[in-house]
């Protein structure tokens, strides 16, 4: 099976590149890479709901923002807390908020699910904006990154972006792996089956509501971890971390990258961050160009950038190589 060997080789190269990245690239690029990793996790969590469960949450930014705020609030008010425990609490908070929102929304038809999750996100945005005593509203809160305590192995300072990058790489890789394995469990299979034909699934004994609630809550865990990582990375959080643009970015990244494939959103996140970096150096209206790319991809039913890498093209490419 030459094909699978090539895939392993490719993944190996990508892994190596990611590990050596800070040594070969400049500071700016390390920043970008860290952002790409974080948003890849965010987009992936979005696609668990959209691509694999058939629900379109326009309000996913809420879960990202919850993670961002919870992390900063812990750093601020519980400075001694071990970093890894903070990650866990952030994850849990996202899962719980998602479970709560899901209780109301998951039963609804596509359009209503989309807009009511959006309404929930705007609601949380309003709380973040108005509850100044807790969140400092638009001004936001700054923190300094605490050290990573590797119980027994000493402390790793998180002052350098390089270290933040590596921590992010580890956490995001673990997150992506967990999501990937999730889809291979019976519960993951239930999620996909329910999306395929919910009527048939329910007559086979599948509880459609609980299944959708489960995947939505699960997705909330990783969205909030991404949010927490982001506010940790930026050493800052404010209402922009839980606003409409954050919700839209998940939609854009996933659709542009491709929702039909597991790694599609990751590609979309890379595109999003690089595109933003590139276009915003030329014009401050880069958002509209992104929106245009998005609309065009939906309009032409392109299926996203990941389709540039689909099996047929790779096979054609390989067969041309062999000749």
């Amino acid at each position: 099976m030459i094909r699978s060997r090539i895939y392993y080789f490719l993944w190996g190269m990508i892994g190596l590149f990611l590990l050596l990245l800070p040594k070969v690239l400049s500071m700016i690029h390390i920043h970008l890479a860290t952002e790409i990793l974080i948003f890849a996790l965010f987009a992936l969590s979005f696609n668990l709901v959209f691509g694999y469960s058939g629900l379109l949450p326009f309000g996913h930014g809420a879960l990202f923002g919850v993670g961002a705020y919870v992390a900063v609030l812990i750093f601020k008010h519980f400075p001694g807390m071990p970093l890894l425990l903070t990650v866990l609490i952030t994850a849990l908070s996202g899962g719980l908020v998602a479970a709560f929102i899901g209780l109301f929304c998951v039963r609804l038809k596509a359009a209503y699910f989309a807009l009511i999750t959006l309404a929930f996100q705007m609601f949380l945005f309003a709380i973040a904006l108005k509850w100044r005593s807790l969140t400092y509203g638009e001004d936001g809160m700054s923190i300094t990154r605490p050290d990573l305590n590797l119980f027994g192995f000493g402390n790793i300072s998180m002052h350098s972006v390089q270290n933040v990058y590596y921590l992010t790489l580890v956490i995001v890789t673990i997150g992506i792996l967990i999501c990937y394995l999730f889809l291979k469990t019976p519960l993951g299979n239930s999620v996909i089956s329910v999306k395929e034909k919910d009527i048939r699934a329910s007559f086979l004994g599948y509880n459609v509501f609980l299944t959708k609630l489960a995947v939505y809550s699960f997705s909330g865990i990783f969205a909030s971890v991404a949010g927490g990582l982001y506010s940790f990375f930026q050493e800052f959080v404010n209402t922009a971390y839980i606003d409409l643009n954050m919700s839209m970015s998940a939609v854009f990244m996933t659709v542009i990258g491709g929702s039909g494939h597991f790694m599609g959103p990751v590609l979309g996140a890379a595109f999003y961050i690089i595109f933003q970096d590139w276009i915003s150096s030329m014009t401050q209206h880069w958002w509209i160009w992104l929106g245009l790319v998005f609309v065009l991809i939906v309009y032409f039913e392109g299926g996203g950038l990941i389709n540039l890498f689909n099996r047929e093209r790779i096979d054609r490419f390989l067969s041309r190589l062999r000749k």
């Binding site: 469990t185 019976p186 519960l187 299979n189 239930s190 086979l204 599948y206 299944t211």
Partner: peptide
Amino acid sequence: IRNAIVSKYNLRFNWISILD
């Protein structure tokens, strides 16, 4: 068919084993 079997064995919500 497997979808039905998974339900019969009450594994629909199992998240700790690999189905395959």
